[in-house]
Design a binder for these strands. Structure first.
Lengths: 199, 199
DNA sequence: CGTCGCATTGATATCGCTCAAATCCGGTGG
DNA sequence: CCACCGGATTTGAGCGATATCAATGCGACG
């Protein structure tokens, strides 16, 4: 059975694409560069970053296995952020031109592409609401309720707690303390990379 | 000149759509209900909500004037959250079937729809970046730099300063103080609903 | 003229940020 | 096998920025 990008992308587009293996820390593109490609993550993780005046980095998005990134750049001429591998990763590099052409020609694929964008949009908006909450505890709870699976609102942590802290707009110290307090008070349980609500 | 949804949606689709005026608190759809429509907010605000076991509500997104919501109902059979008017609102209710049909039949519109989603996604990510900044002043500056027009980074305020405060994830008091301080120090100027940088 | 909501400013408290230090863990090399 | 290293994790102490509570002025609107 087809897996990964092969399940989504037509053979023609796959043929036009190239496989890229990159080590942790590799830069795939930079802000202002011409948008030559959209990427698909086969394995690993890639961060879309922007930098403040003092060099502090803000993670706009972290694309993991099975996700596209730079899709939003498809209709703009230049990238609007940097892309850096957060782990050693295997990517599929899809030429923007070929993708654009396929979107024109294949309504079925076009529809799929719309579904992908819609999903990303929902997820981004949910994160906006999360970041709008004032307290660390509320943000963690929001994460569980909005992204958690099953009755226990299980959330599997993809990366480190530090990464999660940045995702939540908190320092890692505050997140550690908050999780510890929530666990102490029986609001959540933690077991090897999985957060959930007891009960 | 056309405004709002009329500027985006083709006449045929507008004809198939219906205008809905709803009072604050009105429910537009509920979790699990069949996805019959996509909505566009002409005025007011609508909250997309999800509920935890003990009735805690989590806001997934608050859609405001000029935004679509429930775009995801295009590809799933049931809504995954509740939609409740946060204020008296005027909405455009676009039948999912008609929209789907148009996306299939009209590649030009399809492309346009993709462009709309891409733009919203970029805008949402930009807001994520803004909310990830720690200081009130930095958020205001980020707003000017990322959304401002022209050499002075002019930003026209659509609503009240209170609304802007909420958009920035701040209380209105802090925003007032921050703007006053920035104006005092010559970082920005304010003139009837327009923020800009002097020089 | 009275009311309502926005804008503004003051005083205080809270919570997250910063700096600091100790521990743990996986990987690396001798 | 063990010593070592870097990064994640954890806890502590204190500070500062934002939230919160409170009061006032102002303009719109009936």
């Amino acid at each position: 059975m087809k897996t990964g990008a092969a399940a989504i992308l037509p053979a023609g587009l796959l043929a036009a694409s190239s496989r890229v293996a990159c080590p942790k820390g590799a830069t795939l593109f930079r802000t202002g560069g011409p948008t030559h490609a959209v990427f698909y993550v086969e394995s690993g993780a890639v961060r879309l970053l922007r930098f403040g005046r003092e060099g502090e980095e803000v993670v706009l998005h972290e694309a993991r296995a099975g996700e596209f990134f730079a899709e939003a750049s498809l209709d703009s001429a230049r990238y609007h952020c940097d892309a850096v591998a957060a782990e050693p990763s295997e990517l599929l590099k899809i030429p923007a031109g070929a993708l654009r052409a396929l979107l024109e020609a294949d309504p079925r694929f076009s529809r799929q592409w719309i579904a992908i964008l819609s999903r990303q949009l929902r997820s981004a908006r949910s994160r906006i609401e999360r970041l709008s909450l004032k307290g660390a505890r509320e943000r963690v709870l929001h994460l569980l309720l909005s992204e958690g699976r099953g009755p226990g609102c299980e959330v599997r942590l993809a990366g480190t707690l530090k990464d999660l802290a940045r995702h939540l707009g908190l320092t890692h110290e505050v997140l550690y303390r908050t999780l510890a307090a929530m666990e102490r008070e029986g609001e959540i349980t933690r077991a090897d990379g999985v957060l959930r609500r007891p009960g």
